Amino acid sequence: MIATTPADILRFALDRSREGAGTILVTLTAIEGSSPRAIGAQMAVAEDGRYVGSFSGGCIEAAVVAEAIGTLADSRAKRVRFGAGSPYLDIRLPCGGGIDLLFNPRPDPDAIAGVLCRHDRRKPAALRLAEDGVFLEAVSEGDCADWRDGGFRLYYAPTLRIVAIGQGEELTALARLAKSYGADVSLLSPDERALADLTAEGFDTVRLTVRTSLPPVRTDAWTAILSVFHDRDWEEELLPLALRLPSFYIGAIGSRRTQDIRLDTLRAAGVPEDLRRKLRTSVGLIPATRDPATLALSALSQIVQEYHRIGCISASSDEAADAYAQHDDLIDQALRA
């Protein structure tokens, strides 16, 4: 993994709390001008000075750690401005902006454990960070990172999951890049050589043996599905089945001409229009890629962009998560059969 995730920060805070160490959650709650991090970014600081997360390229982290440790004395939450408009005249952000940080000393470990439990079950979760503590709350309509109900509410989405179907170097390049980014990756392929390599690297792999059915595969509202087949015989049978799986993104690589033929084939196969509309007819942010590494980067960039767009959720998202959990129960039954 190339960078710390929100779940890593919460796990650090929970582990230090369970060790008996004083711990502080620090949250970016407002920005004036520009900032290297978005609202909702966090750090977790332990009383011995260890920390995870960041708010800049290293220019204010030492000051944040010192401020955080200072809050342990009276265990009271506080907000502090850093950068433009801050009382700390010698601490500046390189972008010239200002950020407000909320310090919550000794956050409730049960609340943090609750978020991580839901995260492990691929369900969204929310914390309310207030002057009187840190609280696990039900996910509600429009949850984002913002002030509401007497505190700063912070929404935690399940980890991005990518299900890649295909073969060859396109599959292996996408798998390795997505794993480095931090996504959960599942791979389906008839390519025994590629699967052997990827299985040895610790990937979740499933060998495709027939063209007419998909093996059990776990997907949900935070899953992207991508076909990287060049063999259209496989794709023509499997893509209509993949379109019926829960996902926020589904695409298949190919030129504009290939995409037109693909849509015509789906129409001729009787795939309903609402499912055909789910299919991305342009995969990736870099046009006309010609090598596996660039294709993987292009496709992953588009998938991550779309994943972040669903960061603020609707009231139906928790219900959707329950529906996908039922879908997973059916998958479990199929795997045990």
Score class of each variant (00 low, 15 high):
112 I>Q: 11
31 I>P: 15
113 A>Q: 10
95 C>I: 14
50 R>Y: 10
83 G>E: 06
129 L>Q: 10
58 G>T: 09
103 F>G: 01
55 F>S: 03
123 K>Y: 10
45 V>S: 09
123 K>E: 10
122 R>L: 14
121 R>M: 06
130 A>Y: 08
80 V>I: 08
31 I>W: 05
74 D>H: 13
129 L>Y: 05
43 M>P: 06
78 K>L: 10
128 R>F: 05
154 L>M: 11
52 V>F: 02
141 E>Q: 15
121 R>K: 06
144 C>V: 02
38 A>E: 10
107 P>L: 15
111 A>C: 01
148 R>I: 00
34 S>R: 06
131 E>L: 01
67 E>Q: 03
94 P>R: 01
64 V>R: 14
98 G>D: 02
143 D>F: 13
123 K>W: 01
140 S>W: 10
81 R>T: 03
93 L>Y: 11
33 G>F: 07
78 K>P: 00
147 W>M: 05
138 A>D: 09
50 R>Q: 13
128 R>C: 02
150 G>H: 02
128 R>P: 05
108 D>G: 00
132 D>V: 04
51 Y>T: 00
63 A>R: 05
76 R>S: 08
43 M>R: 09
41 A>H: 07
91 I>W: 13
88 Y>G: 07
157 A>E: 14
96 G>A: 05
51 Y>K: 05
137 E>G: 13
29 T>W: 01
61 E>R: 01
135 F>Q: 07
128 R>I: 09
121 R>G: 06
40 G>P: 08
66 A>D: 15
32 E>T: 14
35 S>Q: 04
36 P>C: 04
88 Y>M: 13
135 F>A: 03
93 L>T: 05
144 C>Q: 14
58 G>D: 10
157 A>V: 00
73 A>G: 07
115 V>E: 04
52 V>T: 03
73 A>N: 13
40 G>K: 03
76 R>C: 14
87 P>G: 14
60 I>H: 11
48 D>S: 05
63 A>P: 00
145 A>F: 08
36 P>W: 03
39 I>A: 05
123 K>I: 08
116 L>H: 03
68 A>Y: 07
135 F>C: 05
139 V>K: 03
77 A>E: 01
146 D>K: 14
55 F>M: 12
48 D>F: 03
30 A>D: 09
42 Q>A: 10
31 I>Q: 06
115 V>Q: 14
84 A>T: 12
101 L>F: 12
92 R>H: 09
39 I>M: 09
148 R>F: 03
95 C>W: 07
151 G>Y: 00
147 W>K: 11
129 L>F: 04
102 L>D: 00
67 E>G: 01
98 G>H: 01
144 C>G: 15
28 L>C: 08
152 F>W: 13
156 Y>V: 02
150 G>N: 04
35 S>C: 09
101 L>S: 13
50 R>H: 15
122 R>N: 08
